[in-house]
Lab assay of single mutants.
Amino acid sequence: AEEIWQQSVIGDYLARFKNDRVKALKAMEMTWNNMEKKEKLMWIKKAAED
């Protein structure tokens, strides 16, 4: 689920960090860890469908 979420937001994060992939990935990891369980559930369901 986290991978699907990352694939959907990586472009936004890379743009925000001027294509600094290391910073973008760290920010994504922090965002994922801070997400509410119900927000993650949507992505977990999406992962299950694929």
Rank of each mutant, 00 (worst) to 15 (best):
K40T: 02
D20R: 02
R16G: 03
E2L: 14
V9S: 03
K18D: 14
L25N: 06
K45I: 13
R16W: 07
D12K: 09
E39C: 07
M30T: 11
A24Q: 01
M42S: 11
K38H: 14
K37G: 12
L41I: 07
I4Q: 07
K26Y: 08
I44A: 11
V22T: 10
K46C: 09
M30Q: 13
I10Q: 06
L41Y: 09
I10K: 04
D50P: 07
W32M: 00
A48H: 09
G11L: 14
L25Q: 10
L25Y: 13
E29W: 08
A27F: 08
K37S: 15
F17W: 07
E29G: 07
M42P: 08
I10A: 04
A47H: 06
K45S: 10
D20E: 04
V9D: 01
A1F: 04
M28E: 00
D12S: 13
A47N: 05
K18Q: 14
M28Y: 01
M30S: 09
K18A: 13
K46A: 10
A24V: 05
L41W: 07
D50A: 15
F17S: 03
E49P: 05
K23S: 11
L25P: 00
F17D: 01
D50L: 15
Q6M: 14
A47F: 11
M35L: 04
N34Y: 06
W43C: 02
Q7E: 09
D50W: 08
W43A: 03
Y13W: 04
I10H: 03
V9L: 04
V22A: 11
K37W: 15
L41N: 07
L41H: 06
L25V: 08
K46E: 06
V9M: 06
K45A: 15
T31C: 06
I10F: 10
L14F: 04
A27I: 05
M30W: 14
E2A: 11
F17Y: 13
N33E: 11
W5T: 00
Q7M: 12
A15M: 13
M30R: 07
E49L: 12
W32Q: 00
L14E: 02
K23I: 08
K45C: 12
A27M: 08
S8D: 06
W32G: 00
I4E: 03
W5L: 00
D20K: 02
M35H: 01
I4A: 10
S8I: 08
E3I: 13
K26R: 12
Q7P: 01
A48R: 11
Q6F: 08
M42W: 14
A47T: 04
K46L: 13
Y13A: 02
V9A: 04
G11V: 11
T31I: 09
R16N: 06
E49M: 13
D50E: 14
N19F: 11
E36Y: 03
E2P: 15
E2I: 11
D12R: 10
D50H: 14
A47D: 04
K38A: 13
N34H: 08
R21S: 07
E39P: 01
M42C: 14
S8W: 10
Y13R: 01
T31M: 08
L14K: 02
K23F: 05
A15F: 11
M30G: 06
K18R: 11
W5K: 00
K23Y: 04
V22R: 09
M42L: 12
R21I: 12
W5N: 01
M35F: 03
K40L: 04
K26H: 11
M28W: 00
Q6Y: 08
M42I: 15
W43F: 04
R21E: 07
I44P: 02
E29K: 11
R21T: 08
G11A: 15
A1C: 05
L25S: 05
M42Y: 15
L25M: 13
K37V: 15
E36P: 15
E2F: 15
M30L: 13
L25K: 08
R21D: 04
E36D: 15
A47W: 14
D50V: 15
D20V: 03
N19P: 04
K46P: 04
K40M: 03
Y13H: 02
K40W: 03
K23N: 07
E3Y: 15
K38N: 14
S8L: 07
V9E: 02
I4D: 03
A27W: 06
M30N: 12
W5E: 01
K26Q: 12
R21C: 14
D12P: 03
W32Y: 01
G11D: 13
I10S: 04
I44T: 05
N19D: 10
K37P: 15
A47Q: 05
K40Q: 06
M28A: 03
M28S: 01
W32A: 00
I10W: 09
E29L: 11
E2V: 11
V9C: 05
K38Y: 11
F17H: 07
I4R: 08
E49Q: 09
L14N: 02
E2G: 04
F17T: 03
M42A: 09
F17C: 05
N34S: 10
A27Q: 06
E3M: 14
Q6R: 14
K26P: 01
A15C: 10
I44K: 04
Y13Q: 01
A27H: 07
A24K: 00
G11W: 11
A24R: 01
A15P: 04
D12L: 09
Y13E: 01
A48N: 10
N34W: 04
W5R: 01
W32D: 00
K40I: 04
I44H: 08
W32K: 00
M30P: 01
E29Y: 07
Y13V: 03
K40D: 01
G11H: 14
W43T: 01
K37F: 15
T31S: 09
K23G: 09
N33F: 10
Q6P: 01
A15L: 14
A1D: 03
S8N: 07
K38C: 15
E3D: 09
Q7K: 13
N34I: 05
F17L: 03
A1S: 04
N33Y: 08
R16S: 06
D20C: 04
M35R: 01
K26T: 07
L41T: 05
E36M: 03
T31N: 06
D20Y: 02
W43Y: 04
Q6H: 07
D20I: 03
D12G: 09
M28F: 01
I44Q: 12
E49H: 09
K18N: 15
A48G: 09
N33D: 09
S8F: 14
Y13P: 00
K18E: 13
L41D: 15
A27N: 05
G11C: 15
D20G: 01
E49Y: 08
K26M: 12
A15I: 12
K38T: 14
V22Y: 09
L14V: 03
S8E: 06
I4C: 12
N19W: 08
M30H: 13
N19K: 05
A47Y: 09
G11T: 13
K46N: 05
W5Q: 00
L25D: 04
D12N: 08
K38E: 15
A15E: 12
S8Y: 14
L14P: 00
D20W: 02
M42G: 09
S8P: 00
I4P: 02
E49S: 09
L14M: 09
A48Q: 14
